[in-house]
């Protein structure tokens, strides 16, 4: 069933300013981690080629969960089911259960446009639109509702502040986003995703096209955003996973091999394959 607004999510109709209010964060923070995304027996295929095999996984709300594993292990495919971007790929299908706060994400009648408002995505390569910096950030909000010019300006400023880009671009909001450096472009893409007011941020190797310094700034940003958003990050970089994530899931050939708290999984993996991968013996 489509759910235009969920009662427990206060970013629906009443929201005008920044997506997430302070009060709401405070009200929820102390409780033990809530499950945001859960999957049971989730399998997925491209045509007749099975890429995910009966995955069981719970992802906690307002934490950073890292998906690691060698190329082709299905971690990006899994990520793209959470906002149903796989719908754009002919022949992609999934079976099993995948839900976001109880919302069935595999429901064929699901309103994917509304889902993508709730689940933002940052891609591997920065993909700012060939528009001004302001219009890039305002793009998402403008899709979904009508803003007064002052509200929109405020929303853009807050989103850029939240993505730690405001100081660098506040004097040139009207110049093209394509003039920014790679790292700045990626932070702009994060601001663009935040501006819509999502609950979840999906990041598909967000730093793989960036230099070490830009990577460090994005990682710092991810740690800050954790307070407000549930973040799922796909990464090839083991150090990055250990630096930014609370929980880690290790995938191999479409199967979930091991999952757990990041510090435990990296220091004391229970599975031999996980140990080999995180210590760099293969992958």
């Amino acid at each position: 069933m489509t759910q235009p607004t969920t009662p427990e999510q206060p970013l629906g109709a009443s929201r005008v300013e920044l997506p997430r209010g302070e009060s709401e964060t405070a009200a929820r923070a102390p409780s033990s981690p809530q499950t945001a995304i859960s999957m049971r027996g989730l399998s997925s295929w491209y045509g007749s080629n099975q890429v995910l095999h009966a995955l069981d996984l719970e992802i906690a709300a307002k934490q950073v969960c890292a998906f690691i594993g060698p190329s082709g292990c299905g971690k990006s495919t899994l990520l793209r089911w959470i906002n149903r971007m796989n719908d754009t790929i002919p022949g992609a299908r999934a079976a099993g259960m995948l839900s976001l706060h109880g919302l069935d994400l595999l429901d064929p009648t699901l309103d994917v446009v509304d889902l993508r408002r709730r689940v933002g995505m940052v891609f591997q390569k920065p993909n700012p639109f060939p528009k001004s910096i302001f219009d890039n950030v305002a793009f998402g909000p403008r899709l979904h509702r009508i803003y007064s010019p002052t509200d929109l300006e405020e929303l853009v400023e807050q989103s850029l502040r939240a993505s730690a880009l405001w100081g660098e671009v506040k004097d040139r909001l009207d110049s093209s986003a394509l003039g920014l450096s790679g790292g700045q472009q990626q932070r702009l893409c994060i601001a663009r995703a935040i501006a819509v007011g999502p609950e979840v941020l999906l990041m598909d190797e967000p730093c793989s096209a960036l230099d070490p310094r830009s990577t460090a700034s994005i990682e710092e940003l991810i740690r800050e955003l954790r307070a407000t958003y549930t973040i799922v990050i796909v990464t090839h970089n083991m150090q990055q996973a250990s630096r930014v994530s609370d929980a880690t899931a290790f995938f191999y050939e479409g199967k979930l091999i091991e999952t757990g708290a990041t510090d435990l999984l990296f220091t004391n993996p229970t599975n031999r394959q996980t140990e080999d991968y995180v210590t760099g013996r293969f992958g």
Binding site: R116, G120, F123, F129
Partner: peptide, 9 residues
């Protein structure tokens, strides 16, 4: 670019 726009809803 299309993917980016779709992902924003």
């Amino acid at each position: 670019l299309r993917q980016g726009a779709l992902a924003l809803g």
